[in-house]
Design a protein around this nucleic acid. Structure first.
Lengths: 347, 347
DNA sequence: CTGTTAGCGCATTCAG
DNA sequence: CTGAATGCGCTAACAG
């Protein structure tokens, strides 16, 4: 046994000092109405005097509640996910919950590990976003079988029965963005996106295609890049190489993230093009730094903080209800609206 | 009692199914050598078959160890802190620990709340960075009195007895950066930094002053800005206003963060100056996006990920030793080296 | 309003 | 090598 634990003052110590039973002290601490106001006062002041801190672990074991939510994100170093976490955190703190964030480091293997860890009773519910590698769902289905409240967000390729879902309409948002470029009389539009396995990228690309179809316009496959790199610098070179090899550079680009848009602009600038005079660019995300660049980025604004709040709200609801909102329930999916933010990379 | 908990399979269920005692099953699960290899196998396969997951809460209560570290950062939306968290996470996972990140939302009040939460036995140790508001230290001293291993990082104004400290040499790094600007024959150098209460900003500013002193050069107080705003846009306007009101714009700027440097460059560009041809700028931090801007930012590179690893290493050491490395111990402070990264905002 | 008792699930003595 | 018994600190029936 650990000396740290033993040296702490427990309910029993308070009880002894006050010549009360542990039960009464416990009630007083949890502000139960079933205890005389006077003794409640005595307990509280004694607790303060002796520096009592309740042991959350013991509380959890006894009550079956940890007041902690597990959050699994693909990676830490993507501001979007951090924004979502902020939103979750902001919401749940108001309800006396905390969040335990685990990164999957872009790997399905770690994602499964993270899910496993949360099956060990340390959290009351789980919010998660799949990595781009994730293509099987036994791990989350198991989580649900174990009756763990679960809410998925952002990258949802297909619905998981028993889980909640919070997302944006990637497809329609992309359509709208590309339509802007089409309306601006760009007859040749390029696309730069990420690994196509990742559902959101697929959907944004599909939107790109749809917008063309809708307006009876065509695009060229050689104007489409699906980046395979994962580090800023590699990504930049991939984008730069792609652009520099093109004989016919498009008049506009739709990029599936702000990051790609910024790299795209940087590469175009390096190649001597002016944005937006020569070429227009639209990004996707609206990261906190997307307006720090010169020119400021025009992009689809994704409500990341809000998404976090909604995820949290849904998750706490599931926990409170003690059972699962079925997949057919209207509450099991929330689609948040996006909006186009016009700044300086479009004309 | 929660149905979720009751429906789980416990050691007792395994024991019954195998006609063994709980103790033996427990030993088998923890791979004790004091159990026959054959029965260990039986237990393990039965556990797998029945979908057993050990209850971490019960384990923690019994063992006095949670295998979780608490991390308190001033805010989520500053990439530097996230990088440090990544470093901590990366290191501790190798030792079977997880991290619970709490944001203080830039407020001393929340910081104290976070510390309090960690006094409730949910973590085995705490890593933290003070907010810019923090000016008293009873809360962390109490943490130490309660024998909680503690490591402070980044923003350390004075050492806390009993805690570990990990930082960079903000003062010297700033001196070196400003010396570069002086060597480039800039006879008028400006400074843009954050709230001066925050120790790191103070120290960087002191370095700015020292470099001037060392080279017998002077600077003008009207060329110094300590931003009070906290949101990107407000900050930008504060910087822009500051610069636009100057009759004599300096030939160079030293900024106490990359963020300020970027805003500074944006404002200068807007005012018609060219960076670095007309004005040189050096930032501080080397955020992941500091090389995405055009021109790429020259800056002091802070080893944030490494800082996280060091924090984690020190903290796990403290936990393992079960007592505290005293403040006089050489291990109680680590100062990490910085380096200047030359890119395109200096000539 | 208060006390007694029995768990929560696991680790760990102490016997054998 | 295995089992019985105890306790980690707290909550929650049940009694009074």
């Amino acid at each position: 046994m650990n000396s740290k634990i033993n040296s702490r003052v427990r309910l029993e110590d308070l009880a002894r000092a006050l010549k009360l039973s542990i039960a009464t002290v416990s009630r007083a601490m949890s502000d139960s109405s079933r205890v005389k106001p006077e003794t409640k006062q005595r307990v509280l002041s004694k607790a303060k005097q002796m520096g009592y801190r309740s042991n959350q672990i013991a509380k959890s074991l006894s009550s079956g509640k940890t007041n902690v939510l597990g959050v699994i994100i693909p990676r830490y170093d993507e501001p979007f996910f951090i924004e979502v976490c902020r939103g979750i955190d902001y919401y749940v703190r108001k309800h006396d919950y905390r969040i335990l964030i685990n990164s999957s480091r872009n790997s399905f293997k770690y994602e499964k590990e993270n899910v496993l860890a949360f099956e060990r009773g340390t959290v009351d519910g789980v919010a998660m976003c799949f990595t781009h590698e994730t293509n099987s769902y036994e791990h989350v289905e198991e989580l649900i079988d174990r009756k763990m409240p679960l809410v998925l967000f952002d990258n949802i390729s297909h619905k998981i029965d028993g889980a909640g879902h919070v997302k944006i309409d990637d497809f329609s948002s992309a359509v709208k963005a590309v339509e802007i470029l089409i309306k601006h009389k760009n007859n040749s539009i390029g696309y730069i996106g990420g690994t196509s396995k990742k559902s959101v990228f697929n959907q944004r690309f599909d939107g790109f295609v749809e917008a063309h179809k809708k307006h009876h316009q065509s695009f060229k496959t050689r104007h489409v890049l699906n980046c395979k790199s994962y580090h800023q610098e590699h990504e930049f070179y991939e984008v730069f190489n792609f652009l520099s090899k093109l004989q016919d550079v498009p008049n506009a680009f739709f990029c599936s993230t702000d990051n790609y848009a910024i790299l795209c602009i940087k590469a175009l600038t390096k190649l001597g093009y002016k944005v937006p005079q020569d070429i227009e660019v639209i990004g996707f995300g609206n990261l906190h730094y997307s307006n720090m660049f010169t020119p400021e980025l025009t992009c689809v604004s994704q409500p990341s903080f809000k998404m976090g709040e909604k995820v949290a709200e849904m998750l706490l609801n599931k926990i409170d209800k003690g059972f699962f909102i079925s997949n057919t329930d209207q509450n099991s999916e929330i689609v948040l609206p996006t909006k186009l933010v016009y700044r300086d990379t479009t004309r």
